[in-house]
Design a protein around this nucleic acid. Structure first.
Lengths: 317, 317
DNA sequence: CTGAAAGCGCTTACAG
DNA sequence: CTGAAAGCGCTTACAG
């Protein structure tokens, strides 16, 4: 039994002849070691737990994809769960996942309940957060800055000569990402000497239908609006087509900017939508590498990685 | 120790006073039972393994989302991995996942290597496949019929008076879903007395840029084409905008039909794209329920569920 | 280079 | 209603 264990773990001190016999038999009988027993006795699992707000959301799915690419190659497993954007559910999910004794935890969210933070800290395992470059992460953080991205887009619009810039986003409650984008929008307005106007700020479910409704409401309510920064791509796409339906030229009558890469936005006609491209896949890859490296080294120094973003200037602004 | 075990599993035969003491202490110290030990001794894990072609693809992510909704509520965990559309990698991934001794396996694919089928059958655990209503599944199958969907869309086009209908899809190799859609296309042509024309069939990476290129090639190469059935939504969206760029009226000059729900296709102007809406989320929910029910009953009767599809008729046809 | 002993953290099955 | 014994399938640490 010990010899099989050694061979499968690639330990030295096994004769070539024995090694080959073991491999042959393992192959023939289709033996796959029981990971539960392995992790019980070795006191380390190969399970990484990931909690995202929604598994079905392509943005988060892309990051999970990146993680999976690396973890699979390194012999780790990815257990996923979603919180439905609720800190309360996040806590319940994290607690349940800890029953698997994961060797690392990934949270696509940086706003947690105090008890969730305490629970995770107590585990003494690496925890990586993303979603925003949080000022005070639980442990490590791999992200881009929503504040800087929101500011960059607003500066872009100002640079193009727009002065009455509306801001429309997903619901801000419990959503640090959106909150930070809005802070960036405010910061850019301020440095340009433009006044913030609460009547130019909107939020709603991030759905194209809502985006359409918001665009309509904004243009009707503030006829002097000359640009709309949709800090959510699904709102942007809905707003874009609503502008077409209303016969408003984009960007002639109103410029439209989005946030995040949503494939269709680069395709739409007559003008593709200017947006912020975030490194979704890379965040997953870097997170997984960081976890794997730390488990190998046994290091526990928190890591902070800003992977940046790109402002894709297109015809809509 | 036994008493704590009983209380946490909700076993009877514990006095109320003891039960309360146990809960109080468990809460205070934040005790979460080690699932590895549980599954080792009880010989049943609470892990469901899911393999999809690509985690980042929104279609598959939506099904995983549905599974996660149910599994989480029932106390199960979802371990996900992707095969990159490769049967060889699928085999490696399935084998690795079996090390977790999952209580059930989900495969978003119905074309496997013989050794993968054999390996899974040997485990004596429920296996659910989806992607297509496979004729000979490993065990259970929860899906819709790509053949019927492909036929229904082609019949729709014929019913609208189109006669020279091109078919463009993702690469067919190792992709039963696309293969079946094409069979449905052929069946509909045949019942309508229309001739199949190999020069009207195309495949390529399912990317909007490829869709644009294909539309261009089809219209140039077969000037008499009057409809294009893109059996992949990302191709459809690319083709749709390319038609606009080329100044071709849709559907006046050429009708365009898609496959699968891709949010933007319901938004585009001037005409939304006719498509097949598949029950992605429901497939996940039904799959998870089926797994949970079977584990509870101990039944091992294979189940076959056809969840159907909807043909969403829109302006583009 | 190979193997026997001990034990990871639980639950099953049995005794009281 | 409560608890002691045995053991799940492995690896660690030690002996030869």
């Amino acid at each position: 039994m010990m010899t099989v264990s050694r061979v499968l773990r690639g330990a030295p001190d096994v004769s070539d002849a024995t090694r080959e016999r073991v491999f042959a038999i393992v192959d023939r009988v289709g033996y796959v070691p029981n990971q539960a027993a392995q992790s019980l006795v070795s006191r380390r699992s190969r399970i990484v737990a990931a909690v995202v707000p929604s598994i079905g959301n392509a943005m988060f799915a892309e990051t999970l994809h990146g993680m999976s690419d690396v973890l699979r190659a390194e012999g780790y497993f990815l257990v996923v769960a979603h919180s439905g954007y609720s800190p309360r559910e996040e806590h319940a999910v994290v607690k349940a996942l800890l029953g698997q004794r994961p060797c690392g935890v990934f949270l696509h969210n940086t706003v947690h309940r105090a008890e969730t933070v305490a629970l995770l800290r107590k585990q003494r395992i690496p925890v990586v957060e993303t979603g925003d470059l949080a000022a005070r992460p639980i442990d490590s953080v791999v992200s881009y800055s929503n504040f800087r991205a929101g500011r960059a887009m607003t500066e872009h619009l100002i640079g193009r000569g727009y002065r009455r810039i509306a801001f429309a986003s997903a619901l801000r409650r419990n959503n640090d990402r959106v909150h930070e984008r809005r802070r960036g929008y405010h910061a850019a307005l301020k440095s340009a000497g433009l006044r913030r106007d609460p009547a130019m700020e909107f939020e709603g479910d991030p759905d194209p239908v809502v985006g359409a409704r918001l665009l309509h409401a904004i243009v009707d309510g503030s006829p002097d609006v000359d640009a709309i920064f949709f800090a959510s791509e699904r709102l942007a796409i809905g707003g874009y087509f609503e502008a077409q339906r209303m016969g408003l030229a984009v960007p002639g009558r109103v410029a439209i900017a989005g946030f995040d890469f949503y494939e269709a936005t680069s395709q739409v006609l007559p003008a593709a939508i200017t947006t912020i491209v975030t490194p979704r896949h890379e965040i997953g890859v870097v997170t997984a590498r960081l976890l794997v490296d730390r488990l190998r080294d046994g290091s526990d120094a928190p890591i902070r990685r800003d992977l940046g973003f790109e402002l894709a200037e297109r015809g809509s602004t």
